[in-house]
Design a protein around this nucleic acid. Sequence first.
DNA 1: TCTGGGGTCCTAGGACCC
DNA 2: TCTGGGGTCCTAGGACCC
Length: 432
Amino acid sequence: MYALADMNNAYVSIERVFRPSLEGHPVVVLSNNDGCCVARSNEAKDLGIAMGEPIFQVRRRLPNAGVIALSANFTLYGDMSNRFMSIVSGLGPDAEPYSIDEIFVGMAGVRGDLVQRGHLVRDRVQQWLGIPCCIGLAPTKTLAKLANHIAKTAERKPGSYPADLARVCNLAALPASDLDALLATTGLQEVWGIGPRIGKQLQEAGLHSVLDVMQLDPATVRRRWSVVLERTVRELQGQPCIALEDSPSPKKEIACTRSFGQVVTELKDLEEAVSEFVGRAAEKLRKQDGQAGQVLVFIHTSPFRKDDKQYSRSVTVPLRRPTADTSVIATMALHGLRAIYREGFRYAKAGVLLLDLQDSSVQQGELDLDDPGADRGKLMRAVDVLNGRFGRGAVQLASAGLAGDARLWSMRQEHKTPNYTTSWADLPIARA
DNA sequence: TCTGGGGTCCTAGGACCC
DNA sequence: TCTGGGGTCCTAGGACCC
C-alpha cells in the first residue's frame, strides 16, 4: 500500500499562511522573470487561469478580475516543504519526498483504519502548518496519485465524486464495482504518466476514461506504445511496477538555466551568464559530493518571437578528468560557448548542464602532464630512456596514433634495407 | 512589451567491435 | 557477382513529471 500526500495549491497556500488577507482572492504565484503562473488559488482556477499561462495574457484577458500575482519565494517554499514532509512521514514506515509539495509514504505493515489515520495526519498538517492537503491511498503509486486526485476533486467540486472520498481517499477500500464506476468517470489525462501526446493518441484510439486504459492488454500496449505506458497500465491494474525510493539517489545531471531579463546579443554577456551558471551548478555538484565528466552549454533565441531569426545550439565539452572545480569547468564551458555563438541573433536563454556525474571518492589516477608542479624535464627524460631501451614508439603521444596501426600519413619505405648496425634484429649474420 | 526551471527514463540510429 | 550475426556504447530526441 502507498499513500500520496500533496499540498493544495502549494505556493499560494504557503503565501496565505503569512498573509491571511490573500484568502478569498484569486492569487497566482509566478515563475522566474515573473513570467508564467505556476501556482493558482481555487479562485484563480475558477477564473480559468491555466497552469503555466503567461501573466501578461491573464492581465489582458481578465483586466478587472482582481488577480493578485506574487513572485516566487523558493526559500520560503523549501522550508515549509521540509516541515510538511516531516509531519506526513508519520503516516507510515517509509517515505519518499517526490516533489516540493508531494510525498509518497510506504504503508507496509500499517494496521487499522487507513482513512482515519489519513485524516489525522491531514488535520495535523492543517493545524501545525496552516496548509490544506489531501491524501490518496492505493496498492500502487500510480493508483495512489489517482486517489489523491479524487480526494482533491471531491473536496473542491462537490458532486463530482462521492462526498466521503473528499480530502482522504482509499481506493483499496472500495468494492471492485464501485472502483470501476469511479474510474469510468475520470478522464485518462489524470493518470500519472499519461501526458498530452500519449493522451491524444489514446483518445484517437477510442479510449477516454481511466477505466478504458486500465482494461488494455499490457502486451498490446507495449507493442503499440512503449514499456513506459505498459508499466502505467499494469500499475492501474494494481500490479506494483514502480518501487518506493526510500533513500534519495544522487543526481545524474545538474542544470542551471535561465531566461534573460532582456534580449542579449553580445558574446561578452553570454560569457558572463554562462560563467555564473557554472558557478551555481558546480556548487550544487559539490553539495552532493560529486564530480562532472562533461559540461553542456546551450544558447537559444526566443521561440515566441516569430519575427526573429531563430538559432538554437548546444555543445557537450568533455572535461579532461572529472572535477567539481568551478574555474576548470567554466574554462571549458566558455570554450564551448565561443564555438556555438553566432553574431546577429537575439538570444533569450542560456544554460549549463553538468553531465556524467560521479562520486568524488572515485578518483582515476593519472599521469598529470599539465600539472605545473610536475618536473617535465624528468618526464621527458624517462620517455627517452624507455624508447631507447624498448625501441622507438614504446612511449609516445596518443594523438600521434598507435604505431602498430596503419598510419596513412607515415612515410612509405617499402624498399628500405635493414638497420644493420643499430638494430639487433637486423644484425647481419656471417656464414662460413 | 511581457512566455520558467530542473529533472528522469526510454528509444532509435550510428559507430564500432569480434 | 557474391558481403553475417551478435553485441555494446554513445547521442539526440521524445515524452513525461512537478
